[in-house]
């Protein structure tokens, strides 16, 4: 794994257990690469053999993540076969017909699947579980626009965090809520999050060798260890470069 990148430093060296991580991005600057990074990190961090990732996909199919993670040096198919990577493709699993039956957009059933998966894990694998949700805004679509339902779902995921000490990583788009008078969903998620990672374009406009900036607000379990970092990044073919503003020649 990429030891010592600024992102890893900002996230802390330990497993994110018991923490809620929120990624916020916008149209100009996608934070998907951070999601990939955390996915790879969660699977490859020591102790390797017991890490488990439950991935709830709304935005992309398995093949998409498989291709990207392969480039980063992580084989999802193998992990899946070893029961260390569980992939729920919501768009495939919940076709419209089935969804129509429930008023909850299938979210209760989805939560049931996640809970069942986690509680069925052998005891030694229950220590380092990461639940990842790739796009909350699309979950809102699945819930037919009901913010409350999404928040209920997230609440239930949060109960898993406090019960099993797993970590919850979720991605949402900041700018789609910019019009709302009271941006309730994104704000509620910010309150829920222990670590907030925000991807933004540079304030100074487009640049060829800097793709954007990341702000990581890591509110430690002990509050005094709050850490705020801000750095820029460049997304390359197989990796991402992180650097402090002005530190690159």
């Amino acid at each position: 794994m990429e030891q010592g990148t600024l992102l890893d430093e900002a996230l802390g060296s330990l497993h994110l257990s018991g923490r809620v991580v929120l990624l916020e991005d916008c149209v100009e600057t996608s934070a998907a690469f951070v999601l990939h990074h955390i996915l790879k990190r969660s699977l490859s961090q020591p102790p390797h053999s017991s890490n488990v990732v439950v991935f709830v996909a709304f935005a992309h199919p398995f093949s998409h993540y498989d291709r990207i993670l392969r480039r980063l040096g992580c084989n999802l198919v193998v992990q899946k076969d070893n029961n260390r990577f569980f992939f729920f493709d919501v768009l495939v699993d919940c076709p419209d017909g089935e969804e129509g039956k429930n008023s909850d957009g299938g979210l209760v059933a989805l939560y049931g699947k996640i809970q069942k998966t986690i509680s069925a894990l052998p005891q030694e694998n229950k220590n380092c579980i990461t639940v990842m949700i790739d796009d909350i805004s699309l979950m809102e679509v699945a819930a037919k626009g009901s913010t409350n339902l999404v928040l209920d779902f997230l609440h239930y995921c949060h109960t898993l965090v406090s019960e099993f000490g797993c970590s919850l990583v979720m991605l949402n788009h900041d700018d789609i809520y910019s019009d709302t008078v009271r941006p309730s969903l994104i704000l509620q998620m910010e309150y829920l999050a222990d670590i907030l990672i925000r991807a933004e374009p540079l304030a100074t406009g487009l640049a060829s060798d800097v793709h954007g900036q990341l702000t990581v607000l890591n509110s430690g379990k002990e509050r005094s260890r709050n850490k705020l970092s801000n750095f820029q990044f460049k997304v390359k073919e197989n990796s991402v470069e992180y650097f402090y503003p002005g530190s690159r020649t």
Partner: peptide, 23 residues
């Protein structure tokens, strides 16, 4: 009112898809 505020867990338990979680 935290663990199961809407009775989802209970419903899932009835369906047999989840076990009761003790705390």
């Amino acid at each position: 009112c935290y663990t199961d505020p809407l009775g989802w867990r209970e419903r899932l338990m009835e369906c047999g898809s989840a076990k009761n979680l003790s705390y």
